[in-house]
Structure formats: C-alpha cells, structure tokens
Design a protein around this nucleic acid. Structure first.
Lengths: 290, 290
DNA sequence: CATGATATCTGACTTTAGTCAGAGATCGTG
DNA sequence: CACGATCTCTGACTAAAGTCAGATATCATG
C-alpha cells in the first residue's frame, strides 16, 4: 500500500487525467491540438519556425501545414527572416492574439481551479514546484547572467530570506559584505542562475577580488529543488568559469547553521582554512586550489 | 515570477512531458496506445467490457475493434457474462499476462527512474501524494468497510503513528480505550475509509455504545490530503450513517494538541461538554444531537 | 411472448498525426 | 559564381483515433 513505485504511479494517473482534461478544454475551441500547440508556442514568444518545430518535436512537413492552417484562419502571419531568407518567422495577428488569450484563459482557469479547491494553496504550490523540479532535473539550464538582472535579484532575495529564517538572530543584508555587482561580472567574476523552465531555482556568484583569489558567494538552491544535486552542479559551473578567467585560487565563507553547504564543500575538494575576512555572519572558511 | 498560476502551469508542462515519455516507451512495444491502454486496464483487473470502455472514454465501436485486435494477437480472451449474455468479459491469456507484465515493467522503471535521481525520495513522494490527492479530490470515494480490513488497518496505523508524533509524551494504543471492532460494524456502528485511486487517505469510525449515544472515533486524514476538506466529508458521511442507524446523539473526545480537529468540530455544530470517559489521552469532549 | 431497452459488433466513413521524398529558394565558402 | 548545405514547402502516402448508423443478440417487463 505504501510501495514508493505505486505512489509514483498513482501520481502519474492523477496528472495524466488532469492533463487530458486540459487538452479536452483546448479542443473545445474547435482546432486540433497540434495547431493549438503551435499557436500557443508563438503566443509565448517563440517566433522562429525551426525553433518551434524543434520545441514541439514536429516533422517539417507537418509544421508547414500547421502554419498554413493557422494562416488560413488569419491567426498568424509568417515572413522570411531578414538575416536569412531561408528561415521564417511567425507572429500573431490581432485575431491570433485574441485566440491565444482564450487559450491562456483556459490554462489559467484550470490552474486556478486546482488551487481554489485547496485550503492551503501555498503547501500545494510548494509540492508542485518540488515535483516539477524533480521531473525536469536534466533540463535545468545554468545561465550566466548579470547579477542585477530580474532573475538574479529574485534568487538573491530568496537567499537572504532563507538566511533570515535559518540564522538564530536573523540576517541583515546591510551588515554583510554585499559584493559589488561589478565584481560578479566578467572579466572579474560571474553570476550563474539555474533556470528550470523559466523559473529560477538556484544561483551562485563568482566574485573577483584584488587579493590573488576569487570568492564563491550566494550559493542558493530553491527549497523545491533540493535533493537534485543542483548545488554541486552550480559549484562545478562556477569553478569552470573561474578556470576560464584564469583564476587559480578560490575561497568562500559560510555558516555552520547551513550544514548541507559545509558538507557539499568538504566533499568536493575544499579544505577548511582560518577566517580570512571580518564579515560578522560566517564562521566557517574554505579554500580550493584549481 | 512567483505567480501561483504560473507555478501550476510550470508543473503542468513538467508532468506533460514526463507522461509523454512514458507513452513513447509504451509505443516501443509495437502496439498502438489505444490497444495498450485496454490491455493494461484488463491487466489491472477490469474485466467488464462496458466498464473498461467507460473508464477509458472509448466509443463502443472503437472498443470492439481494440478488443478484436488484442484477441487476434492472442493476448486476451472474451466471453459473454454468465448473468447477462449481452455483456462481455475480457481476461488475459498467458501471453497477455506476459505482455502486461512488460508494460508494468516499463511503468515501474519510469517511476523508479524519477525516484532514483532524487536524493530525498521520501520528500518527493510526499509531494507527489499531496499533488495527486489535490488533483483527484472530486474522485475520492468514501467506502464503508470492515475496521479489520487491510485498508482500515493501514489508516489506523498511520493515525496512531501521528498521535505518537504529536502528543508531547507519545501515544500508547494499549493505554487508550481501543474500540472493539464489532462496535464499528453495522448495525452497531460503521467504519468509513476515504480511498483516492486505491490509496487510503483518511478514515473515521462510528462506534456504537450501550449508553444512548454513539461515538465518533479515529478521524484521520493523510498529511498529503489535508486542505481538501476531507475531514468534513468524512464527518458528514459518519453522521449520515448514524442517522441511518437511528442514532440521535453523537459524542467524541479529542486532544487540544490537535487544534485543527477541534476547529472542525466547533464549526460543524458540535458543542463542548464535560469529560464523559476516563481515557487518559483526550482533554476535550464534544456532543452533537442529530 | 411481444416489446422496448441494452450491449456489442460491423461497415463505412472523417479527422488528426505523422512520414518520406523531392522541389525550390537561399546561404556560406572556396 | 559554382557547389554543397540548409530551410521550408508540397505531394503522396500510412497509421491511429474517433464517429455514426444500423444489425444482431439478449434482457427485463408487462
């Protein structure tokens, strides 16, 4: 009754029928699912025909016909790309935007419906985040981006909030040595965000200094993405970026209130060293030679 | 970035692709999905053709042809039902059982694969249980069953384990007034189990006494099924069974360490009364006149 | 035992999805 | 500017899924 595999399969059955219900509601708009999917891909900002085909896994002949049918309905327009006339771009017409909005409304209504039946929506959402991260584990992209970008700032905000929860006396950003964003941009450093299907679920900063080493800062993994060894992947990415930048020595500080972090560092070749700064929060210091 | 609806939709995308991958692996056995689904429904114990058709949502013509193709492959046998020769029963042949086992192996491997990538499988499973319960909320069946049945005993075991966790000094079944199973069978009482797709996710007992009232005992909702107002549904079912049995007064005891239970009782017409038994665990007592 | 209801089956369709080969336009490169 | 590579499109298919109108057999009921 409690076999793990049976529980996963019960989950599969539950979501299969939920997904099927959404597909059925899509069919209610009188268009085959294939055409609806292409329309939605375009509505969500994909315009390059080859990219859509790849994303949806369609044959080029089939894709071409689906585009034609959407064009005949007056929902999209296609044009050759300016930089390469072999490739085509597709975009929604006014009618297409209306139709796309109708599909969006169906999707949103379904999502809303699931949430509305639940008196603890945040618990349900956290569980969904966790499952979604687990299922898309191998599709998590590690993207280098500006530490001031929206997604980076979101990660940092979550990171600070978590420190506030886990440190006995809270955490005040202004007391910490908040690294200058410029130190986490090439060529001095870098900032890497893990993105799972548009949602940022982790980050790490590589901060350049003038003291002959660089620092690893702001390693964070979203609660729903823990257990997927994402921290290790982020650290690997930061280290290889450091090597690219010609950095040979890395340091970092952390706090014993975050035991999983310390364990990660110890198991990946970092060795503990004496305090090397006067930041009030950390009480553990590590170094790794590349 | 944190819009609840967007999070649900990210979840939808993640599971859609996981489900698609399983379908693809099913196709690898060289049989269309429709036929595979029918074979699997039969393998999982559904034998009545009309029931399978209903479960899979198939047209009777299509169903007939799928059955024929499975028969031609030698995987199933069909026969008219003995009690009604218009209806047909289908069952697997030896070869059908082999083929069904192969599909089962694929499903199990997929489930195993998901779990294996996760270093905290129990956390992931708990999240899956919660999501599955939320998605199948309206398909939860409340079944009256014997309190000694396997599913009832599972619920009771989970109930006792939870009391052990939540009571400051633990919980010892032998110290509590463990109701005689016979008091929770008709006509003296009843035992109701909430089943979500084969998994028991809640229970409640109606225990007959010789003192002019019946007691509500053992109300439990699985952690993953909380927030769905299942406790209320179970209580409603217990009350209407009580009415059927001609019971006019209900009592129950509970503990202030279970605040959600007390809140449920207060909000559904129960009023607090003085202690009416000498069980060491409860410290709150309620009564409701039907 | 006639009659209407029910369950399954068959034949004759349509729609959707997907495959494949080749045509035509365009691109990058030597 | 010739040539191979790339991208899209068209025509000609097949397979799968689904629909619908009877035909046939059986059942429950008066």
């Amino acid at each position: 009754m409690l076999d793990p595999v049976a529980r996963v399969r019960r989950f599969n059955r539950a979501v299969t029928s939920a997904v099927g219900a959404l597909d059925t509601s899509f069919l209610g708009r009188g268009r085959p699912l294939g055409a609806a999917r292409v329309l939605n891909a375009i509505g969500h900002g994909r315009s390059d025909v080859a990219e859509i085909r790849d994303y949806l896994g369609l044959d080029s002949g089939l894709m071409s016909r689906l585009l034609r049918s959407l064009e005949d309905e007056g929902l999209i327009e296609t044009a050759a790309r300016e930089d390469d006339a072999r490739r085509r771009m597709a975009k929604l017409t006014r009618a297409g935007r209306r139709e796309f909005a109708a599909y969006e409304a169906l999707s949103n209504a379904q999502a809303d419906g699931i949430l509305a039946q639940h008196s603890q929506a945040e618990v349900l959402l956290a569980a969904m985040d966790l499952v979604a991260s687990a299922l898309t584990r191998e599709r998590v992209a590690l993207d280098e981006m500006d530490p001031r970008s929206e997604q980076a700032r979101y990660c940092l905000g979550e990171y600070y909030a978590e420190l506030g929860r886990r440190f006995k006396h809270g955490f005040d950003v202004s007391l910490s040595r908040d690294p200058d964003a410029n130190d986490m941009r090439r060529p001095r450093g870098s900032f890497i965000v893990a993105i799972s299907d548009t949602l940022p679920i982790g980050c790490v900063g590589l901060k350049g200094t003038d003291h002959g080493y660089a620092e690893i800062k702001r390693l964070w993994v979203a609660p729903g993405a823990r257990g997927l060894r994402l921290g290790r992947r982020l650290m690997d990415a930061a280290e290889s970026t450091a090597r690219e930048l010609g950095i040979t020595l890395l340091r970092l500080d952390t706090n014993s209130a975050l035991p999983e972090a310390g364990q990660l560092y110890r198991s990946t070749g970092w060795r503990e060293i004496p305090r090397f700064n006067d930041d009030p929060y950390p009480d553990l210091f590590f170094e790794k030679r590349l």
